[in-house]
Amino acid sequence: MKKIAILLFFLSKFVFAQVHYPIDTTYTIKSVYKKLKKEYPNVSVAQPKKYENVKEQKEIVYLKINNRKLHLDAYFNKTKKQNPALVILHGGGWKSGNKSQMETFAIEMASKGYSCFNIEFRLSPEAIYPAAIFDVKKAIIYIKKNARKFNADTTKIAILGCSSGGQMASLIGTTNGNRNFEDNNKSSINSSNVQAIINIDGILAFKHPESIEGKVAGLWLGGNYEEKATVWQQASPLNHTDKKTPPTLFINSSIPRFHAGRDDMILILDKYGIYNEVQTIQNSPHSFWFLNPWFDETINYTAQFLEKVFK
């Protein structure tokens, strides 16, 4: 018993040394399925397929912050030398979720000729805004530096996000070249610019007539709107949309709160002649991208859009 106690003691020390930051596990594919199954009894979780033309490399360290390592998973097509790249951000209210939740999505897109990257970034229990934005921009730079390893075309990079990840993807895309959104304003041979945005049910404005963001957003933004009004405005992609914003695809459920600010953003994109699409998946819940019968439709909209902008 004494030996077992000693072993458990050292094991706990090891685990603590490896995971020294808070982890919120409230948002999972399993929890989404369990919740939605009650209202949509015929849904099923989309399962990853095996494709001979897809190569996987997981847990690649793209950034070290003191003792903290941030990872990405790469899924890329082996049959093409230079694939357009797709950087993928998971949802979870900026506080939960993880990169592996988007594995099925990444594999499916890789099979269609894309180099896909699921990104780990710091969530609000560990670090508040803008840490996650800095992380993802560093990941994009890492991908560009190592493009040959992943058969990636650095001139054709799209960023895609779901829910809170959609908000992040849109903010990253609308701040191309904005040094205020680069960590410490450090220069790099490679930029973090992207050439397309895909927003899947993510808000475009935190404070908006359609938005009902509250406590969860406040946890990420460092306080509620009354306390951090400037930050709430700064973190809203709508406020950075201009003539330099890349082509954008919005894939939405029919729930208005999850596309707050979208129509206003489209007006700006149209003003500057920037290509954009809206695809609404009718009668779908939030987090539809995990589940059949909506998964394939989401993939098809994504692939069709990328074919148009990267052809």
Rank of each mutant, 00 (worst) to 15 (best):
K34V: 00
K35E: 11
K35A: 07
K35Y: 10
L36R: 04
L36H: 09
L36F: 09
K37I: 04
K37A: 11
K37L: 13
K38F: 05
K38A: 12
K38L: 12
E39N: 13
Y40P: 06
Y40K: 10
P41H: 12
N42R: 12
N42F: 09
N42W: 07
V43I: 15
V43W: 00
V43T: 11
S44H: 10
V45A: 03
V45R: 07
A46H: 10
A46I: 09
A46F: 07
Q47R: 14
Q47G: 02
Q47V: 15
P48H: 09
P48G: 09
K49D: 12
K50S: 13
K50V: 10
Y51L: 07
Y51P: 00
Y51M: 02
Y51S: 05
E52K: 14
N53A: 08
N53T: 14
V54R: 01
V54P: 01
K55V: 08
K55G: 00
K55H: 12
E56T: 07
E56C: 02
Q57R: 11
K58S: 11
K58C: 08
E59V: 04
E59Q: 12
I60Q: 03
I60N: 04
V61Q: 07
V61I: 15
V61K: 05
Y62Q: 04
L63T: 05
L63I: 07
L63P: 04
K64M: 04
I65A: 01
I65N: 07
N66W: 07
N66S: 12
